[in-house]
Design a protein around this nucleic acid. Sequence first.
DNA 1: CGCTAATCTAGAACAAGTTTCAGACTTGAT
DNA 2: ATCAAGTCTGAAACTTGTTCTAGATTAGCG
Lengths: 216, 216
Amino acid sequence: MPAEAKVSAKVNKPAKVEARAAAPASPPLTERQEARRRRILHASAQLASRGGFDAVQMREVAESSQVALGTLYRYFPSKIHLLVATMQDQLEHMHGTLRKKPPQGETAAERVAETLMRAFRALQREPHLADAMVRALTFADRSVSPEVDQVSRQTTAIILDAMGQENPTPEQLSAVRVIEHTWHSALITWLSGRASIAQVKIDIETVCRLIDLTAP
Amino acid sequence: MPAEAKVSAKVNKPAKVEARAAAPASPPLTERQEARRRRILHASAQLASRGGFDAVQMREVAESSQVALGTLYRYFPSKIHLLVATMQDQLEHMHGTLRKKPPQGETAAERVAETLMRAFRALQREPHLADAMVRALTFADRSVSPEVDQVSRQTTAIILDAMGQENPTPEQLSAVRVIEHTWHSALITWLSGRASIAQVKIDIETVCRLIDLTAP
DNA sequence: CGCTAATCTAGAACAAGTTTCAGACTTGAT
DNA sequence: ATCAAGTCTGAAACTTGTTCTAGATTAGCG
């Protein structure tokens, strides 16, 4: 019946007031649709790498990715959704990269700090892209919760990986959540020029001490 | 020479690219100007208390406060500036209120957690207002750094007050910074419905343990 | 008081995110 | 090959933040 069947639960008109399931099993995308989605995300990242959040203009993204504006909005119901999806995309890369060279530290705290600093260095190479993604993430409202949650889970996974913990205790999970909070907020202060790179490093190292506090 | 003399270093055209001093000594405001500023902030808080960030529309703020749109922009060069100023305003109240009943906890960590939870409860009474202020705070870019920094200093002061520390060590200041990070980020996750009130409480209590770690 | 510079007002104009719509195009099923 | 249903396109419209302008007002000074 349909053609280029319903793009997915995620990729569908409902822009704001919707309340759909997270993304348990994303209805399959046509090849051309997958390609479109990829082009869009690529254009988004590219524009973001230039001027950051403001430079990602929906009309430009649409043009760059050779897609009509309406289509762009069908795939990503708002600029925030688009940027959060871009972040998901980048995070996957990052996780893959990090996996390859596990951190060397003796203690879990050291390894987590080392991993986060590695990620931070990667972000420093594309500060504008980082700006766009992080601003979108923290500005996101309820309508983007599922996607933001996914980013959060991915981040948690990275941290747990670094800890080398298979079965973290609830206490450790709390510590990880606090580390994530610190990570996001520290990034923001750095991006808005209110904290130096050194400062971010200190904050990360400081919060990572919580791990020793909950694990020994 | 002038009339309603230059409103202040802060309240003046330069909207974005400016780089003026923080607010060492704000050139005095006329009574009528002070009144206008107050009306604006009041309207802002009122609108925010209704629908949150989105409900604070510059045209409405202008109308509610009986001021021309251009004037509103002269006082607050952007919606973000306005909301951050609103937050400064609210924070002052809060600090005053908190001062009156110092926290009871035995340890510094307990007192800080208690204070933050008290603040959190206050925010829960006006969740929309909280939404508007916190979103503005984390979305603010470099052009708002001085104002955001001011908010940060105020928050730091509240926390140090609760700790009862006159001369905090650098380590303790790091811990306080991390606590602030956690505070902001936890608020965001709560506001966007991704964390429960209980969860925020746990996160706050968890991060406050850092104080014991740096002070004993 | 009368002047002058700065401020305030009303309203138009502009920019970018979002929505809408008619028509062309695809897809999968018959 | 044909058809129905769902997609994509192009373009216009709408919303809200921000800027601009011409003229009315106001404050402080001589």
